[in-house]
């Protein structure tokens, strides 16, 4: 039981890290630039990671920045040569250890999720339901819904530089939502009869009827476009990783020991 969870979890963690660095990480770094004030929203500083599409839409371009040529603008912050080099070396080390830790913790997170998932397979088997690759895929999608999608309905994946309510209150709502959604989806998938279906619907709805802790006003410093892209991408990556985790764990689980 533990072996299939460990193998599937680490593989899913690696996949998660790969997708994260391909699609998500640059938005976290950009968000932090706004959080620390290195970039200022509405101040005419074009984000360095923006692609060329923006250069053509000069109507949108800030009037204060020199609109002539985009490459010098990108080169401008690294103007002082000597400084830039030593800074880059130190930053390179930091980036390496930061990304190594990120990969490690993706591994840990998905090993944890893998263990929970496989415990679910064991529970299903104790009640005579066999989980294979195909069911595993569905379990993975359900896991995504319970641990990422449903909590994100109230607490969107947070980009650094955006604001959120009290941490402990959010954590409690998150955990409650994950538990209710897991129980609700379990009932929906394996329950029989009208009462089970009603129970499932109630369990799925409760967290959202109660509602997540909210802010009284909005004062995030990162642009909403950035936060939206980040949230959408992290959910997309979550779905891909969870489905592969579920399918892989299901396949390993169903293999003769």
């Amino acid at each position: 039981m533990v072996t299939s969870a460990l193998i599937a979890g680490f593989a899913a963690g690696l996949f998660a890290a790969l997708l994260h660095f391909a699609f998500v990480q640059k938005y976290i770094l950009l968000g932090e630039d706004y959080e620390t004030g290195a970039l200022v929203h509405f101040n005419g500083v074009a984000a360095p990671a923006e692609d060329h599409a923006h250069d053509h839409t000069t109507a949108q371009a800030p009037a204060t920045a020199d609109p002539a040529t985009p490459p010098p603008t990108e080169a401008a912050p690294v103007a002082e040569d000597g400084h830039a080099h030593s800074h880059d070396a130190a930053e390179g080390d930091d980036t390496f250890s930061r990304n190594a830790l990120t990969s490690l913790f993706f591994g840990l997170a998905y090993v944890g999720y893998g263990l929970v998932l496989v415990a679910g397979y064991g529970l299903a088997e104790a009640f005579g339901k066999r989980v294979t690759l195909r069911e595993g895929l569905l379990w993975g999608i359900a896991g995504f819904a319970a641990f990422q999608l449903a909590p994100a309905m109230g607490l969107e994946p947070e980009l650094p530089g955006t604001m959120a309510a009290d941490l402990t209150a959010r954590q409690i709502w998150w955990i409650g939502t994950a538990i209710c959604t897991t129980a609700g989806l379990g009932l929906l998938g394996y329950g029989r009869g009208v009462v089970a279906m009603i129970g499932a619907a109630v369990l799925l709805a409760i967290p959202h009827v109660i509602g997540a802790p909210e802010l009284e006003s909005y004062s995030g410093v990162a642009p909403p476009e950035l936060a939206a892209t980040f949230a959408a991408r992290s959910l997309g990556v979550g779905l891909m990783v969870w489905s592969s985790l579920g399918a892989m764990a299901g396949w390993l689980w169903s293999r003769p020991q």
Binding site: L108, A109, V111, P157, S234
Partner: peptide, 28 residues
């Protein structure tokens, strides 16, 4: 599994928070 997920995603320890920072943000 729950304990592992808790350590990665929820523990308030500053060291754990810093190490898992990007994962916490990206995993919601």
């Amino acid at each position: 599994g729950t304990a592992t997920v808790f350590l990665t995603g929820f523990a308030h320890s500053q060291t754990l928070h810093d190490a898992a920072h990007d994962v916490r943000h990206a995993s919601g």
